[in-house]
Amino acid sequence: MTLILHLILRLALWLLLAPLLPGIINKVKAWVAGRRGPPVLQLYYDLAKLWKKSVVLSQLASPGFVIGPAVGWVALVGAALLMPLGPAGSALSFRGDVLLLIYLLALARFCTAWAAMETGSAFEGMGAAREVSYAVLAEAAIIAAVLSLIVHTGSVSLITMLAPSPGAGAALLAAGLFTVLLAENCRVPFDDPNTHLELTMIHEAMVLDHSGPPLAVILHGASVKLLLFAVLLVQAVLPIGEMTPPAAAGALAAGVLLVTISVGLVESLLARLAFRRVPLLLTTAFLLCVFALLVAWKGDAT
């Protein structure tokens, strides 16, 4: 019984808190630009409204167009449930759960790309092609980061992997994972979530045709993914497992807030990269993770 209660609480935490992050980012951007900006809870209002709207389907779309977002959302929430939350531990932990997490993200990517291709629009094909191609480099960076944590802790399950402080390579790992966070969540400088030019979009181009509840599910899934990466980054860099539970919870919350604000600042201060530069930045992220791995290796060997 407590187990089920625990699970429900955890699920509620993820589902309810996630849409807060894009709101904070937008607030930070507005603050830097000297505007008032939309309310922090804007995404909640949007989601509620979209959930009630009717759906316009492309004439070419098959049921996969609606099933894709649903599967993608479940995959993202499942990945979030695998992620340990500081002192609260994790809902399900086993050896190799980190791989399930990575591949659940891949499942979400496949479903989004599949749903995008349903419409036969060139723009959505372009977005899908970009998404799956850039993910190749992002995946390499993520697995290098995971390997560095594995080398450091000698463990293959998330909960023990993320507990201790990551040692000397923390700064490298943080920089690498932050870049991956920006790329995977389609933020500036990889993609501009507010752009109005379809030719320059990645993620937004894939969801051009979605409307109503499927779009709500996609937007909510994207915010869960952002929160997931923020939590991963914070736990990988801070020694959450070595603190007392209240301190750990506080540190986690503060860390996530800091990451969110940084995303907002990056978005205000940087311009979007030219597409031919994206691989360069992703390669840099990969190399940062690789060097974190080598530092972990060398640091533990001596």
Binding site: P279, T283, T284, L287, V290, L294
Partner: peptide, 17 residues
């Protein structure tokens, strides 16, 4: 290209260590 030279440089650094 930038990416190959970056990779070469990283490889060189690792080899140097």
């Amino acid at each position: 290209g930038f990416v190959p030279s970056l990779l070469l440089g990283a490889l060189g650094t690792i080899t140097a260590v």
